[in-house]
């Protein structure tokens, strides 16, 4: 399986994402600059964290119009796994690939520490390696992770089981403690916590590696490849 890590001007978790996939997961991965227009030959797309375009105007608002985003939308529509972490999540929201928007954290602080997440849905291609209700430790690092959606959207998210991760303690004021959601089809996941920073116990937690393994497991089952 071959992953693309999209690099925007201002991305700063691209190296961690690359390391997680290449060295810890053991899959193929390449950086793709935001100016590119094709994602041909890639089986999965990773949008890393950072401060793309300095977070000017709104987080993710400008990156969403990068040339590569057309190819990201096409990959999403083709059913390929698309994962956006932190700023990557914000870009997916601005691009309309996921519903809702981000507000400043309720306490106005940049929160940077490991947090406990609860796995709400393990029937996605991103979470099949977890147990429902399992508590995992993954770091967050954001100032705007206060997820917002209106009540009708929240009802839809619940009805379609699109809420994958919630915060055990709601650290930033998010609606229903939401930390990560998928699109309706289930192949696009956005999450504020950083699984790529939790891929080795030396880093404090290896709980995030399960997410990457889940993607690979799903892909192998689909392509009937045994390792």
């Amino acid at each position: 399986m071959r992953f693309a890590v999209i690099v925007f001007p201002g991305s700063n978790c691209d190296l961690d994402m690359y390391h997680a996939v290449k060295d810890e997961l053991g899959a193929e991965v390449e950086y793709v600059w935001h100016d590119e227009t094709s994602l041909e030959g890639f089986d999965g797309v990773l949008l890393p964290g950072g401060f793309s375009y300095g977070d000017y105007l709104r987080t993710g608002a400008i990156a969403r119009f990068s040339p590569i985003m057309k190819a990201v939308v096409e990959a999403a529509e083709a059913g390929k796994p698309v994962l956006g972490v932190c700023n990557g999540f914000q870009i997916l929201l601005e691009a309309g690939l996921l519903p809702g928007a981000m507000r400043r954290n309720q306490n106005l602080k940049f929160i940077c520490r490991p947090v406990t997440l609860v796995v709400e849905n393990n029937e996605t291609l991103f979470s099949n390696g977890y147990q429902n209700g399992e508590e995992i430790t993954v770091p967050v690092a954001h100032g705007e992770g206060n997820y917002y959606c209106d009540e009708a959207t929240l009802a839809q998210l619940k009805e379609n089981n699109q809420i994958v991760f919630t915060y055990k303690d709601n650290i930033n004021g998010s609606v229903d403690s939401i930390a990560g959601i998928t699109n309706e089809a289930g192949n696009v996941l956005g999450m504020m916590p950083h699984p790529e920073r939790a891929v080795d116990s030396l880093l404090g937690s290896a709980d995030g590696l399960t997410l990457f393994k889940s993607i690979l497991t799903h892909w192998r089952e689909r392509h009937a490849i045994t390792s």
Binding site: R103, R104, N105, Q106, N107, L108, N146, Y148, G173
Partner: peptide, 13 residues
């Protein structure tokens, strides 16, 4: 401006 009903943490501070 943020829509009415959307919490504005900066405004509250």
């Amino acid at each position: 401006t943020l829509k009415a009903g959307v919490l504005d943490p900066q405004g509250s501070a």
